[in-house]
């Protein structure tokens, strides 16, 4: 009981409310884009984007710029560059992405060593600080959520066909390459905007885990996309409550909650009685 009042008291604090709203917005965006990301086998791509964001932040710090301002354009340019490499080299995708993310991490750490003492510290960059979310961050996240929802909503059928079979989409006149680029730009913006709260190491969990859980629970594609976004938001709320109640780090608490939801999703269909189709 005391635990509950403690949690309720905590969520009356403005910074906790901001953190909660920020978590929900990130969960919704991550889940929505994540549903397509995993089917198009771009999960590792989102991971590489997360790691590269650290490079963007460290370059910003070195130049004396606000890291939050630098990280978004950097993430977009980086994503477009990586996409170009993926389309124009003959390397295996996962090998190329590995080169990119480990080297950007290494260069980022070296760059940070020139910056001297960064007040947030490396720990916060790696694991995020959801409690440091400002109102302006929420405005950006909210705006991006609207952009993502409108884009995915209006092009849902095109996205579905592209995900299913690209030649079929081209035969129907879909500009596959342009659509792919647009999606990657959105994905990089979501990753870039979420970095501050969740950190470079855990951000891809928001993209990948709720979507995988939703995959197990969905019978149609439309439900799958909505459920993926919903599970992203749900895990953010539960994770924040757990983090507040037990005084645990918030980003990792949310990811642990995502894992719990994922494991439940795997177990659930097996518990159901077999339904005749």
């Amino acid at each position: 009981m005391t635990q509950l009042t403690h949690i309720i008291e905590l969520f009356q604090l403005p910074f906790m409310q901001r953190a909660l709203i920020g978590g929900v917005l990130t969960g919704l965006m991550g889940g929505m884009l994540g549903s397509f990301t995993i089917l198009r086998q771009l999960s590792f791509f989102s991971d590489a984007l997360g790691h590269s964001a650290l490079l963007g932040i460290s370059i910003g710090l070195l130049l004396g710029l606000n890291p939050s301002v630098v990280v978004l354009p950097f993430a977009v340019l980086f994503a477009l560059g990586v996409n170009y490499l993926l389309e124009h080299t003959r390397l295996w995708t996962d090998a190329l992405l590995n080169i990119i993310y480990s080297s950007s991490l290494a260069i980022a750490i070296i760059t940070l060593s020139f910056v001297g003492r960064y007040k947030g510290g490396l720990h916060n960059l790696l694991f995020g600080d959801i409690l440091a979310v400002q109102e302006l961050d929420l405005v950006f996240s909210g705006g991006l959520l609207i952009v993502c929802t409108v884009f995915i909503g209006l092009t849902l059928r095109t996205q579905m066909l592209m995900t299913l079979n690209e030649p079929l989409a081209i035969a129907r006149g879909v500009a596959v390459s342009a659509h792919r680029t647009a999606f990657i730009v959105l994905l990089s913006l979501v990753v870039g905007i979420s970095i501050k709260a969740i950190g470079v190491l855990l951000v891809s969990a928001f993209i990948v885990i709720p979507a995988c859980a939703a995959r197990f629970l969905s019978r149609t594609f439309a439900h799958y996309v909505v459920l993926s976004a919903g599970l992203g938001a749900l895990s953010a709320v539960l994770g924040m409550v757990i983090s507040a109640g037990f005084n645990l780090p918030s980003g990792p608490s949310i990811v642990a909650t995502q894992l719990a939801i994922f494991l439940t999703a795997i177990a659930l269909p097996n518990l159901r009685l077999p339904v005749h189709e």
């Binding site: 089917l39 579905m160 995900t163 299913l164 995959r215 019978r219 149609t220 594609f221 439309a222």
Partner: peptide
């Protein structure tokens, strides 16, 4: 592994 029904396709 893509969750899509016949109707949706």
């Amino acid at each position: 592994r893509i969750p899509m029904t016949v109707e949706e396709l």
